[in-house]
Design a binder for these strands. Structure first.
Length: 445
RNA sequence: GGUCAGGUGGCUGAGUGGUUGAAAGCGCUGGAUUCGAAAUCCAGUAUAGGGGCAACUCUAUCGCGGGUUCGAAUCCCGCCCUGACUGCCA
């Protein structure tokens, strides 16, 4: 039995979405004025030149639109005449005009179908294109070209061979993959006792810290419509990475829900920056990662995460980005977990991001740093997709900038605590900051 | 989930097939008046897109999508949302 195959539902969902907001996905005027800038920027992240075919389509659309509008204007004018003629009892004049309108209607219908097709094509073209990297993002092909910006803390030296978190958890009898597999398959886990509590304690501490930084605690929907997923950039390209029901997608991150809170709205400037945080489960099918991190809790279909989202004005977003990085770092520092800050190169940037910092925590069993948070500035990329704007002045509505970051991934933080705080006998010291959240317990096991 | 009633501009609210992108009021902006202000008066006040150097002009939008019609805010269908009643249920 192959368990997971909800693709059909997903495709159906996606095709049924209304075609709203497609045209604004990228600044088409800016592309017309300076196509090279766009192609160059895309090239930096390995995307073929796109503007030629975009502009070609744009030309066709504008031409067709002009003709449609002309025909519509003619129809409207004639219709008004008909109304007048009818009122004045000039029946035959009205009939003559009706014939005229019928002609215009044929033109409108024919051109309209063509126009619709072209607009859809442009929409599909644009919606599948990633964000442009910021100018200062280091160039690179992939993960190996990311740049280390900072290192914090000293990896602990063990006088015994440190165990992997799943060995520790299973030995404690509080991390049970086998039982989870009986009901849900691989990449699920049952946590029990102190480890279940540790998961909650970590989330609670993170939430307390982030709300203390001015992020408003939010409890959003976990199931969202396709258009919300398109808004943040999960669709159309990554449908197979997500789970769906008959009409909803399960959020792969609270970024989707939190960012979409401002969709289709025009915010007053003084509401910015709007900072939100949420502790939610996240659901990912991990379609493309067969065989990677199959052991342990590093890569699960379901995990908890405390997410940070900020909606702000364009001129605020760089500062906002650094602030969110600081807020995420603060959690690792408070837990005294060694980590490093990476700046992603153009080749490793996510679909919607124009600049991203990753936080990687030290995992002794793997003798390496592993991603625990990813903090991205999406610029106006998502805002354009969901029509999220702010009032910059009278008659001056502009797209907001959106940022998101983990503050932090709870599951991976639990992994890091287990591995970094393990004792030779397999028990785990509770990080000092976490003791109050663990009901005073200073040790697990 | 079912039945019924609704969804109109920043807000209130008129409009049930024909110059209605939409009355009126409130709010807001500018101007007149005033020493200044209040009051009053006049004018302006949605969004997106096409064309134009510009003045300007055209198109679309009355929850969303589709249909009927020469013409739809107004009629029909589907969906979304709100309220009332009702069913089931954590």
């Amino acid at each position: 039995m192959t368990a997971r195959k909800p693709y059909r539902a997903q495709r159906r969902l996606y095709l049924f979405r209304p075609p709203a907001y497609g045209r604004a996905m990228f600044d088409i005027k800016a592309i017309r004025e300076n196509p090279k800038a766009f192609d160059d920027a895309w090239a930096r992240r390995g995307v073929e030149p796109q503007t030629a075919r975009i502009l070609e389509r744009d030309q066709l659309i504008r031409k067709a639109k002009g003709m449609v509008q002309e025909a519509e204007a003619a129809r409207n004018a004639a219709s008004k005449q008909i109304g007048l003629a009818m009122r004045e009892g000039r029946k035959d004049d009205a009939e003559k005009l009706k014939a005229e309108v019928a002609g215009a209607k044929n033109v409108i219908a024919a051109l309209g179908t063509q126009l619709e097709g072209e607009q859809r094509e442009l929409h599909d073209m644009l919606s599948g294109l990633p964000n442009l990297p910021a100018d200062d993002v280091p160039h690179g092909a992939g993960e190996e070209d990311n740049v280390e910006l900072a290192k914090w803390g000293e990896p602990r030296s063990f006088d015994f061979t440190p165990k992997a978190h799943d060995d520790l958890g299973e030995a404690l009898g509080q991390m049970d993959f086998e039982t989870a597999a009986k009901m849900s398959g691989s990449r699920f886990v049952v946590l029990r006792g102190q480890l279940a509590r540790l998961d909650r304690a970590l989330a609670a501490m993170m939430l307390d810290m982030q709300t203390g930084e001015g992020f408003e605690e939010t409890a959003p929907p976990l199931l969202v419509w396709p258009k919300a997923m398109e808004g943040t950039g999960q669709l159309p390209k990554f449908a197979e990475d997500s789970y769906s029901t008959a009409e909803h997608f399960l959020i792969p991150t609270a970024e989707v829900s939190l960012t979409n809170t401002v969709r289709e709205s025009i915010l007053p400037v003084d509401a910015l920056p709007k900072r939100m945080t949420a502790h939610t489960p996240c659901f990912r099918s991990e379609a493309g990662s067969a065989g990677r991190d199959t052991k342990g809790m590093i890569r699960q279909h379901q995990f908890n995460k405390v997410e940070l989202v900020s909606i702000c004005a364009p001129e605020q977003s760089d500062d906002e980005h650094k602030n969110m990085l600081r807020c995420a770092e603060a959690v690792l520092q408070r837990l005294e977990l060694p980590y490093r800050v990476m700046e992603l190169c153009t080749g490793d940037l996510g679909f919607g991001a124009r600049k991203t910092y990753d936080l990687e925590v030290w995992l002794p069993s793997q003798d390496t740093y592993r991603e625990i948070s990813s903090i991205s500035n999406c610029g106006d990329f998502q805002a354009r997709r969901m029509a999220a704007r702010y009032k910059a002045g009278e008659k001056d509505n502009r797209f907001v900038h959106t940022l998101n970051g983990s503050g932090l991934a709870v599951g991976r933080t639990l992994v890091a605590v287990l591995e970094n705080y393990q004792r030779e006998d397999g028990r785990i010291d509770v990080p000092k900051a976490l003791v109050p959240y663990m009901g005073g317990a200073e040790i697990i096991g």
